[in-house]
Structures are given as structure tokens and as C-alpha cells.
């Protein structure tokens, strides 16, 4: 008998505690598979955020640190500086990274820290029950924008990849989506690339996953994918923003 599919070694045996239809599990699996495939597991450590993926430290079967809300890139900076022989990634949601942790992500990127940041954008605070996120779309209803996000009052959603792409230091910035098997396969390639650059100590690498929140969007798994395709992808365009690896190879 031949094993053709198995749980990645970089995931623990724990069952994910995410809601039905949530894509965190897919993102976790892509990262874990990539770490396995690149043989990075023994040297890899990660940082979990505050938010729905707060328990990521239980799910990744490597050494993990749990950060205060938004501080993951600062922890990762301390970790990488303390153990330059090891590799570090953070895993953060949109509230964590693009609101309370804005300073930490911008400055870690600006220093060109040799870390990989995985940013899951589903346009809402999931863990706390569906409040408005910095990435909540215009007119989108949440529990704290019950009449729809009023951009004249609270501003437009923040496009983090575009923001970080104004900085000189980042090495790799790409936005991918997780809305279909084909998009997941593309996302996997980006994850592999970012972690390869991480392994090769090229510099700061950043991946944004456009994701969903069926529970707080009030949709089922498939509807939420359609909703994301229709509403999120036009605003958060899937593309590579920066790949210094390609520039350097020229």
C-alpha cells in the first residue's frame, strides 16, 4: 500500500477548532505542507496571533510563541535576532495585523526582518463575533457597522500588500486567494516561494490570503466563497506585488 496523502508532520494531531467552512484550516495546511516539503520543520518556529487563529500555537507542530494582539512581528523580530540560525513565521488576521498591530507590521517589514508573515484577510473580526475590521469593505454590515461601513465616517479598507509595497526593504509580497481548489494550488506555490526565500535568508516575505468568514458573514461555506469573489477580490486584487528573487535573477 502506498501513502499518497497524509497529515503534514508540521501539524499536530489536534483537530482544528475553526468554524465549518472556515479557511484557516486550509491556510494552516498549506503552510505546514510547505514547511515539510522544504525540510524546514526542525529549524522553524512560529508566532500565533490574537483572533480566530489564536490557538495556532497548538496546531503547528513546531516551537511556537503566542503574541499579544498585533505584536507578532515584534516577537518574530526578537526570535529571529535571538536565533538567526532558525526560521520564523507569523500568522495573523486582519484585526491583529492591520489595526492594533499596524506599527509592528510596517516596521518589521521596513527593517526587512528575515521572517515570513502570513496574513489572513476575511474583512471581519471573527473571534470576537463579527465586528468591523480595517479591511471591512465599504457598506459592508458588521456588528459595529450595523448600517454598513460608512467610508465618509470611518474611512476605506486598508490594502496591506499595497501599503507594504511602498517600502524599500520587503523581498516578497503577494496576495493570493483560497476560494477554490485552483486558487489554493496557486496559493501553495506562493507559500513555497516565500518560505524558500525565508530559508535562503533573502529578507522579509509577506503573503496575504483572501479568505472568508461564513459564520460572521451569515453565509454558508459555498456562498461565502462566492461573496468573497464578488466583493473582496475586486478590492483586494490577487497579484504578486514584489519578488526581488526574480529581479535579482535577471
Amino acid at each position: 500500500m502506498q501513502v499518497i496523502a497524509t497529515r503534514p508532520n508540521t501539524l499536530t494531531d489536534l483537530n482544528f477548532t475553526y468554524c465549518p467552512g472556515c479557511l484557516h484550516g486550509v491556510a494552516h495546511r498549506l503552510i505546514a505542507e510547505a514547511i515539510d516539503e522544504l525540510g524546514m520543520r526542525n529549524q522553524m518556529m512560529g508566532v500565533a496571533p490574537v483572533g480566530c487563529s489564536v490557538f495556532a500555537y497548538k496546531f503547528f507542530n513546531i516551537d511556537m510563541q503566542e503574541a499579544a494582539h498585533g505584536r507578532a512581528p515584534a516577537l518574530a523580530t526578537g526570535m529571529k535576532r535571538a536565533r538567526p540560525d532558525m526560521n520564523v513565521f507569523t500568522y495573523q488576521g486582519d484585526g491583529d495585523l492591520a489595526a492594533i498591530g499596524t506599527a509592528e507590521i510596517v516596521h518589521a517589514a521596513n527593517r526587512g526582518e528575515h521572517i515570513t508573515v502570513f496574513f489572513v484577510n476575511n474583512a471581519i473580526y471573527g473571534m470576537t463575533g463579527g465586528q468591523m475590521a480595517p479591511t471591512t469593505l465599504p457598506d459592508m454590515k458588521t456588528t459595529t457597522s450595523p448600517y454598513g461601513r460608512d467610508v465618509d465616517d470611518i474611512g476605506y479598507p486598508i490594502r496591506v500588500c499595497e501599503l507594504l509595497n511602498t517600502l524599500v526593504a520587503p523581498y516578497f509580497i503577494e496576495r493570493v486567494s483560497l476560494l477554490s481548489p485552483a486558487e489554493i494550488m496557486k496559493a501553495k506555490k506562493a507559500v513555497l516561494k516565500a518560505l524558500t526565500y525565508n530559508k535562503e535568508e533573502r529578507g522579509f516575505t509577506f503573503i496575504e490570503f483572501v479568505s472568508t468568514c461564513p459564520t460572521n458573514w451569515g453565509l454558508d461555506a459555498l456562498e461565502s466563497r462566492d461573496w468573497a469573489r464578488e466583493h473582496m477580490l475586486p478590492f483586494f486584487k490577487v497579484q504578486n506585488f514584489r519578488d526581488k528573487g526574480i529581479e535579482e535573477a535577471k
Binding site: 518556529m45 508566532v47 510563541q65 503574541a67 499579544a68 505584536r71 515584534a74 516577537l75 518574530a76 523580530t77 526578537g78 526570535m79 529571529k80 535576532r81 535571538a82 536565533r83 532558525m86 509592528e104
Partner: peptide
């Protein structure tokens, strides 16, 4: 928080 990360690496 950088101190936290470094200390969590035992340094």
C-alpha cells in the same frame, strides 16, 4: 515584545 520573542528563545 521583541524582548518577549528573544526571551522565548531562551536568551
Amino acid at each position: 515584545n521583541m524582548v518577549y520573542g528573544a526571551s522565548g528563545c531562551g536568551r
